[in-house]
Design a protein around this nucleic acid. Structure first.
Length: 759
DNA sequence: GAGTTTGAAACT
DNA sequence: CAGTTTCAAACTC
């Protein structure tokens, strides 16, 4: 698999925009799915159903089989999930070169046959050959070849085998309905490895309205603590669990042995363009090269269930470590699970896992130059492939090569929540300490809109910026849901799973996302400036273009709006609103300002303004607000927003001057703050080398005592004079200020004296 | 912060 | 398509 260069990416839009082509693909996939669906039904994996209750027993059962107990329903430690008899487990490694790994339905004939052959829950993939054909993506239909671990476990091993285990799991549940319990049962395949390995599993349960069976994904990564590089982490995979009224839940577990080294997977193509803005998350599905292509080091013990979804991972150019963090700690002896880090050494890279709706496979594509994010859904492979769980041998320590990567600077997290009821089903955050990922954020759920919106499908070009199409339930093999790019960012905030780069992550300041703030006031630990103003909508429910957030294809985030529906919790309404807007104006979500090349002269308002009273010199005017001049298409009256307008020039000068002042003030504040902190931090004597530092420590014990005495004395005075408490506090504070000034002045004098001595 | 102005969006 | 209403941001006080 390869990542397509930006140049190549530029070619994507046309293809993507080709609605017919997409439909064709969908159809083709649908056919494949049909065959698979039969197989699925026969085997064990039912599609999602609305009722989660059916799945619960299965989960419980699987849990019971697990050798280890779990404290919380959300996570099971040391177990692998077995549901529905489908199980994928095995280590896999993705080379840094890989941009993505997508497990999709098997599009190729090979895959289909394999799936058919595996009439039952048995794995589709042959482990023996070390190569696993997981899926085909996109038109290319190129299967992804995964290399199976060398484990000697029987190929046909089903998930039911409780003995095979992977050390630790973190389970993340994504999507799904409220009633669905986030939890996923995992059975540990190898208990012996518990001490040495850590396995994380992310389980994503997702539910679509139409389909009743929730899908759960579990991504597990085994980490060998004893490995040479402790940081090496592997994303083992994810377990998908589907439950339907008919069939038991399926679980797919992908495990990656740490021991395998990353290797670049030469792939065919992948596409996906760099994000227009760092905030936007782009997930590119990568089609694996033909089977003939050398298998990359991805060793996947994969058990695929029918209709299950697999994540698409985009790998950034550099293999920066990515961490997946699950907030929940695993049970038992296992060491606290570290966040799963996948990634290379340098560069901040993040991995995004996008939970899919009922329809399993998703391909996300971002079109270069487009703010839209597209997700192409692909039906899961029909054949339930059961890959042998990676045995202990397979779990050998791997060097930490990250498996997934996203475009640099994008950080994504996997939302885990049952689809429609975010509130109810939110899985509890894991207790285990997670590395590099903040779990403090409020639980946000990624709810995949399950609502089928066939109308929207054709309008790929008109989707709101940052929109991601997610599979819609009930839509057959391929469905689409509109998900704003921010969706992904919200996921980042999810405590459950976070994919981020590893140790280098902290150093990498480049990671920025569009909006890291949680929806509607939920604060996140990450302090990132919000690019857009919060809206204040009161009547539109933020579902009309009046709302800037909605108009920009974003969720409301830290907004001041009332009765906001522009969030994950109201995805259905939101989707309807989007559809309405698109019906009214197919270009409603397109940028109003044409993209200029370099200068502003090339930018202009797509529709032009209609100002009557503002002279187009106030921010009421969309042209002026965008800092562009009105053009011939504007219908404004009394326009003064043209090149030679003296009024405009005056305003521009004023604006520039104001901006300069702000910058100066900011710089001054920064400098002052720096100086103060430098002063205060200086607690040890410094040799007067002329470096501008104070020669002596001026905050000594004596000074502190004196200061405290002064403050106490002031307090006594205030008490004696019967002053009110507030006044007393004020006076004490003033006294403290005086003390501080005295200290600083004394330090300054000391510095001068010292400098003079040195001279 | 409350009220007004403004123009895009929505509606008829 | 035009006129009117609704809406939220921009603006003023």
């Amino acid at each position: 698999m390869d990542v397509v260069s930006p140049e190549l990416n530029s070619l994507l839009p046309d293809e993507i925009m080709d609605t017919e082509a997409i439909e064709d693909i969908s159809d083709s996939q649908a056919h494949g799915t049909n065959t698979q669906s039969k197989t699925t039904n026969e085997t064990t994996v039912p599609m999602e159903t609305d009722t989660t209750t059916s799945s619960l027993p299965i989960l419980k059962q699987s849990l019971a089989t697990s050798t280890t107990s779990t404290k919380t329903t959300n996570s099971v430690s040391g177990t692998t999930v077995s549901t529905g008899g489908l199980k994928l487990s095995g280590p896999f490694t993705i080379s840094a070169a890989n941009h993505q790994i997508i497990l999709n339905k098997v599009a190729t004939a090979q895959a289909s046959e394999a799936s058919k052959s595996s009439a039952t829950c048995h794995q589709v993939i042959k482990q023996e050959g070390q190569k696993l054909l997981v899926t085909a993506i996109g038109k290319s239909g190129s299967p992804i070849v995964l290399q199976l671990p060398n484990s000697k476990a029987p190929v046909g091993q089903t998930s039911a085998d409780p003995k095979i285990q992977t050390p630790q799991f973190k389970v993340v549940t994504i999507g799904g309905r409220p009633e669905l319990k986030p939890l996923v049962g995992c059975t540990t395949n190898q208990m012996t490895a518990l001490q040495t390995q850590q396995l994380k599993a992310v389980q994503i349960a997702k539910k679509t309205p139409t389909s009743s069976a929730p899908i759960k994904f579990i991504i597990t990564k085994t980490v060998n603590s004893k490995g040479a590089s402790p940081q090496s982490q592997v994303v083992a995979g994810r377990v998908l669990t589907q439950t339907s009224s008919v069939l038991p839940t399926k679980t797919i577990t992908l495990t990656e042995p740490i021991g395998t080294s990353l290797q670049s997977i030469p792939g065919k193509k992948i596409a996906i363009s760099p994000l227009k803005t760092p905030s936007k998350v782009t997930v590119v599905s990568v089609a694996s090269p033909t089977s003939s292509a050398p298998p990359k080091t991805v060793t996947l013990p994969v058990n695929l269930a029918l209709g299950q979804q697999i994540l698409a991972v985009q790998q950034s150019t550099s293999a920066s470590p990515v961490k997946v963090v699950s907030s929940q700690a695993t049970a038992q002896n296992i060491k606290p699970v570290q966040s799963v880090a996948v990634g290379g050494v340098s560069g901040s890279h993040f991995k995004t896992i996008i939970p899919l709706a009922t329809q399993p496979n998703v391909q996300q594509i971002q079109v270069p130059g487009s703010r839209f994010h597209y997700v192409r859904l692909v039906t899961a492979t029909t054949a339930s492939s059961t890959v042998q769980p990676s045995g202990p041998s397979t779990n050998s320590v791997q060097t930490a090569k990250p498996m997934m990567v996203s475009t640099g600077a994008v950080r994504m997290s996997v939302p885990i929540v049952p689809a429609q009821s975010v509130k109810q089903v939110a899985p509890k955050p894991l207790t285990t300490a997670v590395q590099g990922v903040s779990t403090s954020q409020t639980q946000q759920r990624l709810i995949m809109p399950a609502t089928p919106l066939p109308q929207i499908q054709p309008n790929f070009t008109n989707l709101p910026p940052g929109t991601v199409l997610a599979p819609a339930p009930g839509g057959g093999n391929v469905g689409y849901a509109v998900v704003p790019a921010q969706y992904v960012t919200q996921l980042q905030q999810s405590p459950f799973v976070t994919l981020a780069n590893n140790s280098s992550f902290s150093a990498s300041s480049g990671v920025q996302t569009q909006a890291r703030l949680p929806v509607n006031g939920v604060s996140t630990t990450e302090s990132t400036s919000r690019p857009r103003k919060p809206c204040n909508c009161t009547k539109s429910q933020c579902l009309k273009l009046y709302c800037d957030c909605f108009a920009n294809g974003e969720f409301c985030n830290n907004c001041n709006c009332n009765n906001c529906f522009n969030n994950l919790e109201h995805e259905t309404e939101r989707l309807k609103a989007i559809k309405t807007c698109l019906d009214r104006n197919p270009e409603a979500f397109k940028p109003k300002i044409g993209k200029g090349k370099e200068g502003e002269s090339d930018r202009r308002h797509s529709k032009g303004c209609n100002c009557k009273r503002s002279g187009c010199l106030k921010n009421y005017c969309e042209c002026y607000e965008a800092k562009i001049m009105c053009s011939s298409i504007c219908k404004c009256i009394g326009c003064k927003n043209f090149e030679e307008s003296p009024e405009r020039k005056t305003l521009m000068h004023l604006a520039d001057a104001a901006e300069v002042r702000v910058q100066q003030q900011t710089a001054a504040k920064t400098k002052l703050s720096s100086q103060i902190s430098d002063l205060l931090m200086r607690t040890t004597p410094v040799i007067p080398t002329g470096g501008g530092r104070l020669p002596y420590t001026f905050v000594t014990k004596e000074v502190l005592e004196a200061t405290c005495e002064c403050l106490l004395e002031r307090a006594k005075c205030s008490e004696q004079t019967l002053q009110p408490q507030a006044e007393a506090e004020r006076m004490i504070l003033e006294e403290f200020g005086h003390c501080l000034m005295s200290i600083i002045n004394s330090a300054g004098k000391a510095k001068v004296d010292c400098a003079s001595i040195n001279c």
